[in-house]
Every structure is written in structure tokens, then in C-alpha cells.
Design a protein around this nucleic acid. Structure first.
Lengths: 341, 341
DNA sequence: GATGGAGAGGCAACCGATTGCGCTAGAATT
DNA sequence: AATTCTAGCGCAATCGGTTGCCTCTCCATC
């Protein structure tokens, strides 16, 4: 059985021509039921499977979607960002349900990803996943649009961006996080997370955070903001730095759960009690968020729904329907770390 | 640019025949350097990419690997098992380094996965990942072997199994976990995890656990063993059940970190202090293990190395070299939950 | 008996790249 | 000058399905 059966083998056994086999297996009405059943039986017996390469070549359609991960600015050797990993699960499942295969790839932001998968016809469309300075790859996105590549991007959504973007309401999430802390009596809330350009998502969370505290456009006390990339050790160091500044604070809003978890460790080391001394709220609701001590209050991004929408938007584009940029709601998940319970 | 350039377009522009384009781009020595450079320039300008379908069809090689995940017996809506998710990261990176693409798919154990990817020529080989009762799919593995499909499996490795299996030394891991607890004065150690047939890996961990306590073949006190599937709530319930039995215990060895984390919650609810009242050791060293309170002592499965070995074994088979079943060492990672620090 | 129509299926072109074989022109050899 | 060689490249077949178009057969209809 080293050599796989082709439709010719089946045709011969069934006493029909090869095209008839193809038609029968695709359910063409021009093949009689009797013939079709015979062909199907033989196909099953020979363990025949349509050669997807040949089929895709002819049909110019692969029924495959490519998922491109961008590395974080700090390629964390410990693995993929947990939130994206969860998203990956959802995307995989959704693809399976829709009858599409999923091709996965890691990319450096600097690489030539923009001419890869769809151009080489391995996929019908592309999902882009990854944080990163939007301006760094705006040009590439524009090239994708110009090439009429089908793609959707997860991230900071804004009018006028090239292509379709699906994102979470980061601004609202930041707003809700800060308001929640304020409602429970916190006055001096620190922000841990890169508020500059690396992560537009973080910027937006920070803007919401500021708005809750001062109204539109007001920037919160810079003494209470510490840059941190999206990694646990970055969160740890940022919290240490915050403490070292000596500026009093009674709460932390971390731009991601990963940062928050790192901060928890630093706080514990400094004998600061969470939530009594310092309340803390994260962002993402990664699986580990419910397992920390105390369990982390956070802003949930609905990765399950996000994955579905990403896939379905892409499929719409592939079918030449219009897909719109969308913003998903962010939801406050109250656990113990904020002191509200 | 709606229509993608083919090698014919390039041939025309370069004033050569289409086959020459193909040869030039593959670096054939029969094309003069001058011609090759000209062709390469035009190809780049047209943003030309070799059509992988056509290429794969002709070459009978896809340079793609398929990864098949099996669902846990309890399809946990919260997502993929964290350990496999980490492994996925490693596999993805390794594939990229080796110049292979990765196709991902979820499968129910009951489905017809055994005739899928390689047969339909979407991949050159398959990696099987997932816990599960080995006997449930022995037949399918045998069929894969019979069909001369290239595949490797992650899991319980045993001589005489069909195909190549890469696994971790679960027995040794269980042994080390139990010994470590005993060395730190624990006398009555409970085991949380399905010791029956669902997870052969768990069985093996349990056997090692028993051996440490009584010598070969001796089964530990059944009153101190509670079945649990590989999920957090299962761990939570198992720990509750254990406590409810009223049998005294001063330590827990959980068959996975996920179970251990669920157990931690249950212990905390019962005001049992970890590690003072109850020491606990998990298995896997998932990312969340270091973030629990207290941080979880666990047996590390080196997912990074495992992913590399899985991919490389598979590539060996694809190159028609012999790949051997291998067992990777398990390593005790001491954190606070065991009370040793 | 001639005509029409429909059902069933065959023929051949095609998708785009790869490769064995053969051709040609110029260089090298005698 | 005739012959041999070889670098460089073209021709045509091939990978396995898919599909537009045409053919053939059989039955219904006038």
C-alpha cells in the first residue's frame, strides 16, 4: 500500500472513466445513483482520498487558513503569550467547524510574511495575531490590501486602517478597571504597562484608565505609571520600580494579566498584602488569572468569541462579502485581588 | 494585481521558456548565472511565489507536518490542556526552523483521523498529541503503520507499540515525586488522578508513586487514591472527596498540575495550609505552576525538547531513516508547595 | 418510422511547476 | 577544416483532479 490509490485506479475497478469518479465523489447529479454508490464503495475500500494538491491546484482554493503569530518585542523563551494561546484554541476549533484547515506560523515582525501564504497558495486567507507597534507594519498591511490578499488582524481597531481588524474595547476595559477600583475606595492607582508605542492596545487601556480618573484627555500622575512589556518578569520589575519610587499607591491596574502576575510576586516579596494594602486588576483573563493568590480580578477579553469572529470575518472576505472592523466588549471579572469581595 | 503571476509571466518577460524559470529559481546549475539573476529580479518585482499546490503535486512532497490533537475525554470548554499548548509552541518553532509548515487539527478520538492528512497529501507526516486510552486507538495506529504513514506519537511509550512514540519517564517522575515527599517527612501521601485506564501516563505515574512507598508491585493505600480526570474542577472535587473520607493525609501527589491547582483551591477552602498541613506536588510544570500560591513543586516534562524530538523523529521517518521510540527524563522542580524550602 | 429530449458518461483541456531528454551554437581539440 | 564536446536552454510529458462540451443510448411523442 505504499502507493496511494488515485481516481484512475477507482475508475478502472468501477469500469468507468476517471472524470466520472471525480463527479461521483463530488456528488454531481449527472452520475447515476447506482454508479455513485459503486464508486463510493470502491473508494472506501481502497482508502482513497482526494489529493488536495491536485484539487486545490485546479480549483484555486485550498480550504485552508493561515495563522500568523508575531513574536512579542521580547521573544519570551517561555513560550507563546497565554492569551494568544487561548485564542489559538478558539480559532482552531472554529476553523474545524467551518471545514477549514489551519496552518500555523511564527513570524518575526521584520520578515517577509506579507508575501507568503496566500501568495504561495497554501491558504485562502490569513489571520494576523500579535501585539506590536502598528506603524511598524502599516506598510505591509497596505501591501496586503493592494495585493487583494484576504486577511483579518486582531488588535487595536481604528477607522482608516488598511484591512479588517477585530479588537477588544481596550479603552472601555481600562475605564472600567479604574472605575471599579475607585468605587472601592482606591485613590492612588498605578498603571503598569508600556504606555508608549510598543503596544497600541496598552495605550488604549491607559487612556481609558486616565479618563476614569480625570475626564477626557487628562493624563494620570506619571509617577504612578511604569513601563512594562508584556511578560511576567517585566511586571515583576515594574512593580519593584514602582515601590522603589516611594510614591504611595493603594492599587495597581496592570495592562495584562501576565504583568499583574509578575507584580503580585513583587508585592508579596515586599510584604504588601493584596488586596488589603494594594488592590490589583489585570487584563485578558488568561487561564492562570483564576489560579493566582489571591485570584486576579481582571478585564476579560472573550477569546472564544474573538476567535469565531476572526475566522468568520475572514471567510466572508474569501467569499467576497464585505467584512467590517469590529470591537468586542471587555468585561470586568471580579475576583479577590481588587478587594471588592 | 488580482491575478497572481506565474512562471509563464516571468518567462515571457525574461525572454526564456517557462521551465528555465523553474530551474533558475530552484538554483539548477544548468541555468547561466546571468539568466538566473535576470529571472530572480523579475520574479521579485512581480512578487512571484512558487505555487505550492502545483509544486507539491509534482514533487509529491508538501514540506508540511500535520499536528493532530485529541480531545481530552472531558472536552474542557476552557480550552486546550496547558501542557499541550506549551508543547504546541515548541513544535511550531521547531517546524519553522526546519523549514516545514505546520497544519493543526483537533480530532475526536472516534473520528476517521487515521485516513486523513497524509493520505490527502496535505502533509508529509503526522504528529499525534493527546492523552487517551491507548487501547482505544491501537487499531488505528496499526492501520497507520500498515499504510506506511509517517507519524510520531507523544505519550506512554512501550516496546511493541505500533509506530514511534516519544514520551516522558512518567514512572520515574512518580517515583521521584513520592520520594521527595517522603524525604521531607511525609508519611501519608494521597494520589489524585485517574489510576485506571483513561490515561496510561497517569497509571505510570501512579506505579512509580507506589514503588517509592513500598517497593515493586506494591499498591499504595486505596483510601488515599482518588480518581480525577485531567481538569481543574476534577482536581477540586477529588480533593474534596479525599478530605471527606476522613482518612488522615499529610501530602498529595497530583497526576497533573491542573489537578493540583484544583486541589489547592479545595485545600484552601478547608483551611488546610499548604505546605504546613498538606504538602503537594504536581506533574507537567505548566506555566501556571509557578504562579499559584504557594508556587507548585512539580515534575517537569521538558516540552521544549519534546517538541524538537517529535519533529525531528518525524522528519527522520520522512527521509526514510529509522526513528526510535524515546523516553525523556522527568525532572523534579522544587518550589514551595512541597515544604522542602 | 422519424424526431426530440433527457439521462449518463466520455474526451480533452486545464491548473502551475518540475524534469528527462534532446537540440543548438560556440568552444575546444586534432 | 572537420569533429567532438559542453554549456545553456527548449520541448513535452507528468503530477491527480475538475469541468465544459460533446456523444450515445434509450424512451416518449407525433
Amino acid at each position: 500500500m505504499a502507493v496511494k490509490a488515485t481516481s484512475f485506479d477507482i475508475a478502472q475497478l468501477a469500469g468507468v472513466s476517471q472524470p466520472t469518479v471525480s463527479r461521483a465523489l463530488r456528488g454531481s447529479p449527472t452520475v447515476s445513483e447506482q454508479t455513485r454508490l459503486r464508486i463510493e464503495a470502491i473508494a472506501k475500500q481502497l482508502n482513497y482520498k482526494v489529493d488536495k494538491n491536485a484539487s486545490s491546484l485546479r480549483l484555486q482554493e485550498t480550504r485552508t487558513i493561515a495563522l500568523l503569530f508575531f513574536e512579542d518585542p521580547t521573544p519570551d523563551e517561555t513560550g507563546i503569550n497565554p492569551f494568544f494561546l487561548s485564542m489559538l484554541g478558539s480559532i482552531t476549533r472554529t476553523c474545524a467547524q467551518r471545514g477549514y484547515d489551519l496552518l500555523i506560523s511564527f513570524q518575526q515582525l521584520s520578515s517577509d510574511w506579507h508575501v507568503d501564504y496566500e501568495d504561495s497558495r497554501k491558504a485562502d486567507g490569513i489571520i494576523l495575531l500579535g501585539y506590536g507597534d502598528y506603524e511598524l507594519y502599516r506598510e505591509k498591511l497596505e501591501k496586503l490590501v493592494e495585493q487583494e490578499t484576504h486577511f483579518v488582524r486582531w488588535g487595536f481597531a481604528q477607522e482608516g486602517q488598511p484591512g479588517t481588524t477585530i479588537g477588544c474595547d481596550n479603552f472601555r476595559g481600562g475605564l472600567d478597571a479604574a472605575r471599579h477600583l475607585m468605587q472601592h475606595g482606591r485613590k492612588k492607582i498605578a498603571f503598569l504597562g508600556d504606555a508608549s508605542s510598543h503596544y497600541p492596545e496598552f495605550q488604549d487601556r491607559y487612556r481609558g484608565f486616565c479618563e476614569a480618573q480625570g475626564g477626557e484627555g487628562i493624563i494620570a500622575d506619571p509617577a504612578l505609571q511604569v513601563d512594562a512589556l508584556n511578560a511576567q518578569d517585566a511586571g515583576y520589575e515594574a512593580a519593584q520600580q514602582l515601590i522603589a519610587r516611594g510614591v504611595p499607591f493603594d492599587a495597581i491596574f496592570a495592562a495584562s494579566d501576565t504583568i499583574a502576575i509578575g507584580a503580585l510576586t513583587a508585592l508579596r516579596e515586599q510584604k504588601l498584602k493584596v488586596p488589603d494594602d494594594v488592590a490589583i486588576v489585570g487584563f485578558d483573563d488568561i487561564p492562570a488569572a483564576g489560579m493566582t493568590h489571591p485570584p486576579l480580578t481582571t478585564i476579560q477579553q472573550d477569546y472564544k468569541r474573538a476567535g469565531e469572529i476572526l475566522v468568520d470575518s475572514l471567510l466572508k472576505q474569501i467569499r467576497d462579502e464585505h467584512a467590517t472592523t469590529a470591537v468586542l466588549p471587555a468585561k470586568l471579572i471580579v475576583r479577590q485581588s481588587c478587594g471588592a469581595l
